[in-house]
Amino acid sequence: MNFAFVTVLLVFITLLGIALRRSYFSSRFSIEYITTNLVNEIIWAIIPAILLHAFAILVVEATTSYQVLLENIGYLVVGGNDKERVPPIFQNIHAHIAPILTYNIGLTVFGILVGTGARSFVRGLSLDTLPYFSFLRFPNTWHYWFTGEYLNTERGWKYHKNIDFIMVDVLTNIGEGIIYSGILEDYYLSRTSGGLDRIIIKYPSKKTFSATGETHFREIPGNYLSIPYDNILNINIQYYEFNGAAENTQDDSQPSVEIIEP
């Protein structure tokens, strides 16, 4: 039995864990934005795969007449090549191909649901932003900065919900140095480096500097400005919160704005 077959068999066994892991890392937390490879993915997927397979095997053997022959699976994994033992194993697989496929497809779907449910649970309660649950934190650190969720670690559970909008000042390496300012609208991650690819700001303005030390400020026509990360030297972030609202129509009171300091 060759190495390629053993590799395929291991991938097949850990497919459940891979499906769970990829469903957990989705949306802004996609696994595509994490520097990884097939070996690392298998290592991170094999533990939940083994646990779920063990649970599923117990359920199958307790509720049906089928029995999972783990010794045969182990023999194939270690690369056994006994010509008298290998053919009966594959004959047994062929004879039960339908229930085997049903078992694996059903368990993979279950793994996807578990991964999605776990992510929804963690994100819904903002557990990944709390200090004592830091092990649940996703690798996408930009998300925590650009949503203000990192404030939860200092201000309390779901404190970032108080933030109404986020202002950014982006220092770039364009010309003598240009600072672009505006409301943070969105950001995109690089699929190759795993870092920030670009940010989008709303109602942009810019401040330029001359060799004589003079500064020039002007608004930029247009609603949005896209700034590639390759041109960014530094980013200043300010979180704003509206306090109160103009509820009395007989006066000219207006809601005030408070800068939330990190």
Results as ranks from 00 to 15, higher is better:
residue 80 G to I: 05
residue 127 L to S: 06
residue 153 T to V: 06
residue 114 V to L: 07
residue 75 Y to N: 09
residue 93 I to E: 06
residue 172 T to K: 12
residue 100 I to Y: 04
residue 162 N to L: 15
residue 75 Y to M: 06
residue 168 V to Y: 10
residue 161 K to E: 13
residue 166 I to S: 02
residue 78 V to N: 01
residue 172 T to H: 13
residue 155 R to N: 00
residue 68 V to H: 04
residue 56 A to I: 05
residue 173 N to A: 12
residue 148 G to V: 04
residue 170 V to I: 15
residue 155 R to W: 04
residue 104 N to C: 15
residue 126 S to N: 10
residue 157 W to G: 05
residue 162 N to M: 15
residue 104 N to P: 13
residue 167 M to P: 11
residue 71 E to Y: 15
residue 145 W to L: 15
residue 92 N to H: 14
residue 104 N to W: 15
residue 161 K to A: 09
residue 171 L to M: 05
residue 65 S to Q: 05
residue 165 F to V: 12
residue 121 F to K: 07
residue 125 L to N: 09
residue 147 T to F: 02
residue 65 S to P: 04
residue 155 R to H: 01
residue 74 G to T: 09
residue 69 L to V: 06
residue 96 H to Q: 04
residue 72 N to F: 10
residue 150 Y to K: 08
residue 125 L to W: 13
residue 95 A to G: 01
residue 173 N to G: 11
residue 163 I to H: 02
residue 63 T to D: 10
residue 151 L to A: 13
residue 72 N to I: 06
residue 173 N to E: 02
residue 115 G to I: 07
residue 99 P to C: 04
residue 69 L to S: 02
residue 142 W to H: 10
residue 86 V to A: 00
residue 66 Y to D: 07
residue 89 I to L: 02
residue 55 F to W: 13
residue 154 E to K: 11
residue 160 H to W: 13
residue 65 S to L: 03
residue 156 G to P: 11
residue 72 N to A: 08
residue 127 L to W: 01
residue 141 T to Q: 14
residue 161 K to F: 12
residue 117 G to K: 04
residue 119 R to L: 04
residue 59 V to F: 07
residue 63 T to V: 10
residue 83 K to E: 13
residue 89 I to A: 07
residue 166 I to V: 09
residue 100 I to D: 01
residue 147 T to P: 05
residue 144 Y to N: 10
residue 110 F to T: 06
residue 150 Y to N: 09
